[in-house]
C-alpha cells in the first residue's frame, strides 16, 4: 500500500514539474499569438478534457509501442521502452493533465492584458526579464491553480495509467489502480481505507487552493 502511495506522489510531482516547465511558456504563447494555428494547438491541448482516458491511453500505447515507427525512434533515442514503465506513465500523465495546467495559466495571462509588459519595457526590462519579473508574478494565482489541479488530477487518473502503465507494483501500480485491484480481490477493508484517504486528500487540496487563490487575488486586486 505504501508503495502505491509513494509512487502516486512521485508520479504527480514529476508530472507537475514537467507540466509547469512546458505549460507556462505554452500558455504564454497561446495567450499572445494571434495566429490561427495557435487555436489548433489550444484545441489539441484541451482534447483530454473530453476524450475517454482509455482512448488517450490506447493511442499513446500504440504511439509508444516498439512496433510503431515513433516508438522505435524514441526507444533508440532514450535506450528503453516507455510502455509499462514509470517514464511511460509520466508521458501519459503529462498529456492527460496538460489542459488543467495550461488553461488557468493562459486565462491569467489573458486577464493581465498588454499594458504591464509595455510598462516593463519602457522601464528597460528586456522581454525575458519582464516575463519573469512581471508576467509570472501577475499570473501567480493562475499558476497556483494550474499547479494544484495538475497535481491533483494526476493523482486521480486511472484510464491512461492502466492502458500504458499496467499494474506492476512498485513500478506502475498507483493508488487508483491499487484500489481497483483491492475491489477486484474483494479486499474491502483496504479499498475503504485508500478511498477515504483519496477523498480527504482531494478535499484538502481543493480547499487549500481556493483559500490561497483568494489571498493572492486580494493582494493583486
Amino acid at each position: 500500500m505504501l508503495d502505491a502511495i509513494l509512487l502516486t506522489l512521485k508520479l504527480a510531482s514529476v508530472t507537475t514539474v514537467i507540466l509547469l516547465l512546458l505549460g507556462i511558456p505554452l500558455a504564454w504563447w497561446l495567450s499572445r499569438s494571434g495566429s490561427w494555428w495557435s487555436e489548433v494547438v489550444s484545441t489539441l491541448v484541451a482534447l483530454p478534457l473530453v476524450l475517454p482516458p482509455t482512448v488517450l491511453g490506447f493511442y499513446l500505447l500504440i504511439l509508444l509501442s516498439p512496433t510503431s515507427a515513433p516508438g522505435q525512434m524514441i526507444e533508440s533515442l532514450i535506450g528503453f521502452r516507455l510502455p509499462f514503465t514509470f517514464a511511460g506513465l509520466v508521458v501519459g500523465s503529462v498529456v492527460y493533465s496538460m489542459p488543467f495546467v495550461v488553461q488557468p495559466i493562459r486565462n491569467a495571462f489573458d486577464a493581465m492584458g498588454e499594458r504591464p509588459m509595455e510598462v516593463a519595457a519602457t522601464l528597460r526590462a528586456s522581454p525575458l526579464n519582464a516575463f519573469f519579473n512581471v508576467a509570472i508574478p501577475l499570473a501567480s494565482s493562475g499558476i497556483l491553480t494550474g499547479t494544484v489541479l495538475g497535481f491533483a488530477h494526476t493523482v486521480g487518473e486511472f484510464g491512461v495509467v492502466l492502458m500504458i502503465g499496467g499494474n506492476i507494483p512498485g513500478e506502475t501500480q498507483v493508488l487508483s489502480i491499487a484500489i481497483y485491484d483491492y475491489v477486484e480481490t474483494m479486499n474491502w477493508e483496504m479499498a475503504h481505507l485508500l478511498s477515504l484517504m483519496m477523498l480527504v486528500f482531494s478535499f484538502l487540496v481543493i480547499l487549500i487552493m481556493n483559500l490561497s487563490e483568494k489571498k493572492l487575488r486580494k493582494r493583486l486586486a
Binding site: P116, V119, L123, R124
Partner: peptide
C-alpha cells in the same frame, strides 16, 4: 527597452 525614454500611461499602471 533599449530606448532611454520615460513613458507615463493614461492609467498609472503600477505593478500590483
Amino acid at each position: 527597452h533599449k530606448r532611454p525614454v520615460g513613458y507615463v500611461f493614461q492609467e498609472a499602471s503600477l505593478f500590483p
